[in-house]
Write a protein that binds this DNA or RNA. Structure first.
Lengths: 118, 118
DNA sequence: TCCATTGTACGAGGACCTTCGTAGTTTGAC
DNA sequence: GTCAAACTACGAAGGTCCTCGTACAATGGA
């Protein structure tokens, strides 16, 4: 009880509309090593992963923070499924706004990971 | 007189070697609107521009700061020519490290500039 | 109902970033 | 030698960012 406000199906999460996604915001989101790593795993696993599927060297609080930055910049989409929160790349929106950019970024990240020792 | 250290032809500026350029650093450098603008003009004018060729809405101090961030991240190359400091994209190094990335980024920036009112 | 799982909110610490003003350095021209 | 032009160095103010710890909320199952 005490739905307080929206309720409906589960909890709602604020996502920017496609038109509101800014290149600068996307670049800033991906300029952090932890977030770039998250996005790479998300692209590799090609589908939805829960936050706890990631084994990041930071606390849960920090993990939540990074996922929120990625969501608010328009890089990922988050939805609740039970107690879990599923994450997926917004590749459809990004490809529409900036064709080829996401692929170039992922390729660049993969190349750098291969060049350095993973 | 009193060359103190290197001297040689004019003043030397510290640039990262190609192998030292990091994707995260490049993305961070380009995530600032002022710097993205500088890089776009540099790519459009296809050649070397002096710092004073830009008409940025910030002071000279701030302009110097942004050019340094771009240089230290490996995005541009800076050389002195008389009292002027010439700036050029390091597209050769960037294309070698991350093939196609710079073009994708410039295309994305152009697309966003066209979508919004310039 | 009780509980374990999953993730959030809030605040704090410390680092970094953007911007500015002022004073100084280097260069080329007169 | 003197001077203007172009840029730098330094320090400061104000903001943002990343990280954490602790306490809390929502869900699904025993």
């Amino acid at each position: 009880m005490t739905p307080a406000a929206p309720a409906a199906a589960g909890r709602a999460l604020p996502h920017p509309a496609r038109d509101e996604i800014r290149l600068e915001g996307v670049l800033h989101a991906l300029s952090d090593p932890m977030r770039l790593r998250i996005v790479r795993e998300l692209a590799a696993d090609r589908g939805e992963l829960s936050c706890s599927d990631f084994d990041l060297p930071v606390t849960k609080s920090t993990t939540t923070h990074h996922f929120r930055v990625l969501r608010e910049s328009g890089v990922i989409r988050q939805t609740y499924r039970g107690t879990a929160k599923m994450n997926g790349l917004r590749d459809d929106d990004l490809d529409d706004l900036f064709p080829g950019l996401l692929d170039s970024l992922l390729a660049a990240a993969a190349r750098q990971a291969a060049r350095l020792g993973r």
